[in-house]
Simulated scan of single mutants.
Amino acid sequence: MAKRTARLISQLTAATAVLAAAGAVFIPAAPASAAGRDGKCDSGEFCYFYNSNNQGSVSDFTGSIANYGTSQPSCYDFKGPGNGKGKCVKNNAASVWNRSSKTVRVYYNSNYGGAFQDFKPGAKGNLNATLKNQNASHRFMSSTECKTDGTHTKPPSTILVYRVSLNRVDRVDFKDYVKNVLPNEWVPSWPKESLKAGAMAVKSFGWYWALHSTRKTPSGECFDVYDTTSSQVYKPGSATPATNAAVDATWNKRMTRNGKILQAHYCRTSTECGAWVDGDWMSQYGSRDKANAGWSYDRILKYYYRGIAIS
């Protein structure tokens, strides 16, 4: 619950459809019928190799794939001659060659989730230690990938979290993100109305940066928030029943000022918050004390964040 200062951070959204490649949308009827998959790495394709250093059997693609499948005959497989021919691509690739005109992102999880590695047009290279033989999906990137699907009236469906100690970016379901931040910023045993106020602040802070961020990692990956006190402390698996209940109870509420999602700063005590502009910061311990005194969560929020609307 340390003080946090404003940081400029950036956004990448989750894609929900198969993306365009070479001007045409690639929609496979079934893995076995994927267009252009002949085991040769042709111009315009993104190719996996079974072995490192672009050796072994090739599996070539002309579009994004959310899930390669895990068993024959339904999986996407290595088709070219050499080691690995006939094996499923999922969790079996070691290197790539991107012969398409777009950056292609390889993901650890299916459905474009988890850790990822980008390959620019023309790039050849080995998958990194996290992704080697741990690849589950890939996506042809577009110019809109760093923009959120959220608005000031609709929360983002996902948020990009920079896992600082792991040096990677994870795409996290936005509600799961809020649930795994709140118990690390508010004490789960605090009164319910304090936890609700905290849930609103945590959600609003993350939502704001999803709409406004422009930061990238040193390797050029977009992200919205750090997983540390530079933004908010996010720890997967840390959600508790009490904090989850607070998030669920307030999930359909939004906190705005002049119609815009509030960048809801907060810090430990009113004394620490006093270094910043009054009306823009909430005291975490103050929310606890006011809840103990019988204040509702919306009254607490309106006390600390001046000029806001809760709708």
Rank of each mutant, 00 (worst) to 15 (best):
233 V>K: 05
159 I>C: 02
208 Y>D: 01
198 G>T: 00
268 R>F: 14
95 S>Q: 10
67 N>V: 11
303 Y>S: 00
32 A>L: 01
67 N>M: 15
138 H>Y: 06
309 A>T: 13
225 V>Q: 02
227 D>P: 07
50 Y>F: 13
150 G>F: 06
200 M>K: 10
276 W>N: 15
164 V>D: 01
274 G>P: 09
247 V>K: 02
245 A>W: 14
129 A>P: 05
303 Y>D: 00
77 D>N: 02
251 W>V: 04
182 L>V: 02
49 F>H: 10
274 G>Y: 08
296 S>C: 07
251 W>I: 06
58 V>R: 13
109 N>S: 14
159 I>S: 04
129 A>F: 01
199 A>Y: 04
47 C>Q: 08
110 S>E: 13
30 A>H: 15
55 Q>G: 07
175 K>Y: 01
57 S>I: 08
146 C>L: 11
68 Y>M: 11
84 G>D: 05
164 V>Q: 12
209 W>C: 00
95 S>E: 05
306 R>Q: 01
281 W>K: 03
171 R>C: 04
170 D>A: 09
150 G>C: 05
298 D>R: 10
62 T>L: 15
308 I>A: 07
301 L>Y: 04
26 F>R: 14
105 R>N: 11
16 T>H: 15
61 F>A: 00
267 C>R: 00
201 A>G: 12
116 F>S: 14
240 T>A: 05
273 C>R: 03
23 G>R: 08
164 V>E: 06
66 A>T: 14
57 S>R: 12
74 S>H: 10
